[in-house]
C-alpha cells in the first residue's frame, strides 16, 4: 500500500517538475509547481511528518504560490521565447546537470543507512513533539526566523513602494 502511494506521489512530483521547466507560460510553471508541492506533501505524510505536511500545503502551496501567481498575473510576460544568448547553453547545462546527478548518486551510494531504533510513531512528527523541539532546544533559531520574516516584509515593502522623486 505504502509502495503504491509512494510510486504515485513520486510520478506526480517528477511529472510536475518536468512541467515546471518545460512549459513556456510562467503561469503553467507555477501550477505545475503546486502539483509538485502537493505530491511532496503526500510523501511527507508517508514519512510521518504531519506538521510539515500541513505547513507545506498552507505556506508553500497556499501562500507562496499565490504570491507568484499575483506577480505573474500583474507583471509577468505571458510567454517566453527561447533564444539563448550563449551558444550551446542547453548542451552545456545538460552536461553540468548530468555531472551533478552523478555526483549526488555517488554520494547516495556511499551512505550507510543506520537501522532506525524503535521509533515511536504515535508521537513522532505530531504537533506536540514538533512544538516541544521548537520551543525548547531550538528557541533561538525560531525567534531569529521571526526576525528574518520581519526583515523580508520590510524589504518587500521598501522595494515595491511608490517612488517619489524629491529632487
Amino acid at each position: 500500500m505504502a509502495i503504491a502511494v509512494f510510486i504515485i506521489a513520486a510520478l506526480m512530483a517528477i511529472a510536475g517538475a518536468v512541467g515546471v521547466i518545460s512549459f513556456r507560460e510562467p503561469i503553467r510553471s507555477v501550477l505545475s509547481l503546486v502539483v509538485v508541492m502537493i505530491a511532496l506533501g503526500i510523501l511527507f505524510l508517508l514519512l510521518s511528518a504531519q506538521f510539515v505536511f500541513v505547513a507545506q500545503i498552507i505556506v508553500y502551496a497556499g501562500a507562496v504560490m499565490v504570491l507568484f501567481l499575483f506577480v505573474i498575473a500583474l507583471f509577468g510576460p505571458a510567454r517566453e521565447f527561447a533564444r539563448a544568448n550563449l551558444r550551446f547553453q542547453s548542451w552545456l547545462s545538460a552536461v553540468f546537470v548530468f555531472a551533478l546527478l552523478v555526483l549526488i548518486w555517488m554520494m547516495l551510494a556511499g551512505v550507510q543507512y543506520r537501522q532506525p531504533d524503535k521509533t515511536d510513531l504515535s508521537t513522532f512528527g505530531t504537533v506536540q513533539s514538533i512544538a516541544v523541539g521548537l520551543f525548547t532546544t531550538y528557541l533561538y533559531p525560531f525567534e531569529l526566523t521571526s526576525l528574518l520574516l520581519l526583515v523580508a516584509a520590510i524589504g518587500a515593502i521598501y522595494l515595491s513602494r511608490k517612488k517619489v522623486d524629491d529632487k
Partner: peptide
Amino acid sequence: LVRRNPLV
C-alpha cells in the same frame, strides 16, 4: 540553467 524568464 535553461530558462530565460526571471520569474521561472
